[in-house]
Amino acid sequence: MAEFRPIDVNARFIGIGEYYVGRDAMTTIGLGSCIALILHDERHEVGAMAHVMLPESKGQTDRPGKYADTALATLLEGLGPFGSRNGSIRAKMVGGANMFGFNDNNLNIGERNIEAVHRVLDERRIALDAEDVGGKVGRSVMYNPKAGGTIVVRRADGVCAEL
């Protein structure tokens, strides 16, 4: 049974628009339309996570973790000094829900975020290993680079699953 205990493991909390690159456990709480983009390098036991809020930066540079395009570039750049190369990096993503079931395309930011993350991963030729995205459900996610890149996703009803 997967466990979700960010406090016990002293995980780094990644708020909306933030990111972290390193060897510590990291967590994102209450993902709705946002996406946790996670990069894992098994060989170097290092990884990165960004809490992406919007698909495109449109030239904004102050919060690289906030947008799909700038987030991926920034995470890859951050992993470079650890010896990571594109070939050894695998991606996972969680979130992109449509919490209110809005049909209005404008409000369905979750869907647009999923598409944008897929697109930038393709562009940089990073393999997407697994994803738990879409639907009408909130998710919290916990990732520990030293635990073989396993991700634990928890839903509002407390059910946890490994990804």
């Binding site: 993902l31 829900a97 919490m99 509002a156």
Partner: peptide
């Protein structure tokens, strides 16, 4: 659902 998720 989760409060934070709904408000994102």
């Amino acid at each position: 659902d989760m409060a934070h998720a709904g408000m994102e």
